Simulated assay, not measured.
Amino acid sequence: MIDERELAINPIVQDSVRHNAQTLSNIRALTASLFGVGAGILGLESYPGFAFYLLGTFVVSSLIYLLRVAPESQSTGSKDGANLYFYRPMMDLWVGDSVGNMMGFVLTWTLFYGLVRA
């Protein structure tokens, strides 16, 4: 956890943290729907479809970390750049809304599966 001295040196701006969390949530919701479209068009059923979603969310989280967080941590010289952008970096960046966005995934998955297979 962040101690008082660290907060005095690098204060956490709640509006920025909230904006970053909202942006990440929007990206996850959009990609969950796109993964549902992909799984439906590919005709995936049951466990392979959910594995497709989990693999896709891991790839998206990795890309966000590699393209956004890692370059900033190298330029600022900090060990963990995710702490600069998120209140709980592990939960927000890697797990986030994965379970909540699964409903949108299943919705678009079944829609496009039905459209392609019917």
Rank of each mutant, 00 (worst) to 15 (best):
M102K: 02
S33D: 00
L84Q: 15
S98T: 10
S62N: 07
I12R: 12
A39C: 07
G104D: 02
W109I: 00
P89L: 04
H19Q: 13
L67G: 12
L107A: 13
P71K: 06
V59T: 09
Y85R: 13
F112D: 00
T57R: 12
Y87A: 12
T57K: 11
A118I: 09
G77D: 09
I27Q: 03
L93I: 12
G36R: 00
L67F: 12
G40E: 05
V60N: 02
T57E: 11
G49W: 00
V17L: 12
G36Q: 04
L44M: 09
L84G: 13
A32E: 00
W94N: 04
F58T: 11
Q74E: 14
L7G: 05
V95D: 03
Q74M: 09
A8G: 08
A21I: 09
E72T: 14
V116E: 03
W94E: 08
Y87K: 11
V60K: 10
Y85E: 09
Y53R: 02
D15N: 10
M90C: 05
G81N: 07
Y47V: 13
D3Y: 06
V13Y: 09
G104T: 02
G38A: 08
Q22G: 04
G38H: 01
G56K: 07
L66V: 05
L67V: 05
F35M: 05
Q74W: 11
N83H: 09
S25Y: 08
P71M: 07
H19M: 14
R5C: 00
N101V: 12
M1L: 08
Q22N: 13
N10Y: 13
I12G: 04
N26V: 11
P11H: 13
W109F: 06
G56A: 11
Q14N: 10
A8S: 13
F50C: 01
Q14W: 07
F105A: 08
A29C: 01
S75H: 09
L107S: 08
I64P: 00
G81L: 13
L84I: 11
W94H: 07
F50P: 00
D92H: 11
M90H: 15
Y113S: 14
W94A: 06
R88Q: 15
N20H: 10
H19V: 13
G104C: 00
A21K: 15
F112L: 04
F58C: 10
V69H: 08
V59Q: 03
L30C: 05
M103L: 14
Q14F: 07
Q22C: 08
V13L: 11
L42T: 02
L54Y: 10
F35T: 00
G40L: 02
L34N: 01
T31G: 00
L34D: 03
F86S: 04
V59W: 03
M103V: 14
I64F: 13
D80R: 06
P71I: 05
E72Y: 15
R5S: 10
S61V: 03
N101A: 11
R18A: 15
A70V: 14
P71A: 03
P48C: 06
D97E: 08
S78R: 09
